[in-house]
């Protein structure tokens, strides 16, 4: 019985949001605000129960209870965290800059390693032989490799901002880059249609099969 009630609630919420397809209306607005409140409340609860409480509060209390002198680490963590809230004060806003600065600094430092670990293997993987010999399908492999290297060079040239390609011959490379970018955006578009439809079909499947009990499953 409870499950049936939840299914009805889920169906009503789904249809309320779908009503936007017809036009913006008070029902859509009501459910939009309900979702806003729900998600904020949910995330707040989860953040306390699964992050702050086990990883900070419980550890701080434990350190104090056992007399561990390193409890001050958790106090500093609390102070650093609280610094973010000074963003709300016009007078003490500068305090939040310390916390923001630390976050940005740590983030930037980690990004060095992150980007090089990600990008270097891809750069070395793009060292493709333009001519391949003595293998089956060597023409196809040669063309694929050449096309891949040409695409990388052309697209990179499209994003050169500090000089202009003055001569018409030189403009061919960035133009080719732009064309190849558009082709890739077509592929992105196709993939995105796939995602959007999958999400929509999942809702329709729920409405048809689980709510209205039409069809098997």
């Amino acid at each position: 019985m409870n499950l049936e009630l939840f299914i009805w609630v889920e169906a009503i919420c789904t249809l309320a949001i779908f009503s936007f397809l017809f036009r913006e209306n008070p029902v859509y607005r009501l459910f939009e605000h309900i979702f806003l409140g729900l998600t904020i409340g949910f995330v707040l609860m989860k953040t306390w129960l699964e992050v702050l409480k086990p990883k900070w509060w419980d550890r701080l209390i434990y350190c104090i209870e056992v007399g561990d002198p390193h409890f001050w680490i958790w106090i500093i963590a609390f102070i650093l965290g609280m610094m973010w809230y000074f963003q709300l004060s016009r007078r003490w806003y500068w305090i939040s800059r310390i916390a923001i600065g630390i976050s940005l600094g740590v983030g930037a430092g980690m990004e060095f390693k992150n980007q090089f670990m990600l990008i270097m293997p891809q750069i070395t993987a793009s060292f493709k032989p333009i001519l391949v010999r003595n293998t089956q399908g060597m023409l196809q492999f040669s063309f694929n490799n050449f096309f891949m290297v040409f695409t990388i060079v052309a697209v990179l040239s499209y994003f050169f901002f500090s000089f202009e390609f003055k001569y018409k011959g030189m403009q061919l490379l960035p133009r080719a880059g732009r064309l190849l970018l558009m082709i890739s955006f077509g592929a992105f578009f196709g993939n995105t249609v796939m995602t959007r439809f999958a999400v929509f079909i999942d809702r329709i499947q729920f409405l048809i099969q689980q709510w209205l009990h039409i069809g098997g499953g």
Binding site: F188, M194, T195, A198
Partner: peptide, 12 residues
């Protein structure tokens, strides 16, 4: 992944 981001993951 979702299909939408798959194109950016094929290089990996």
């Amino acid at each position: 992944c979702a299909s939408i981001v798959s194109s950016t993951l094929f290089p990996y």
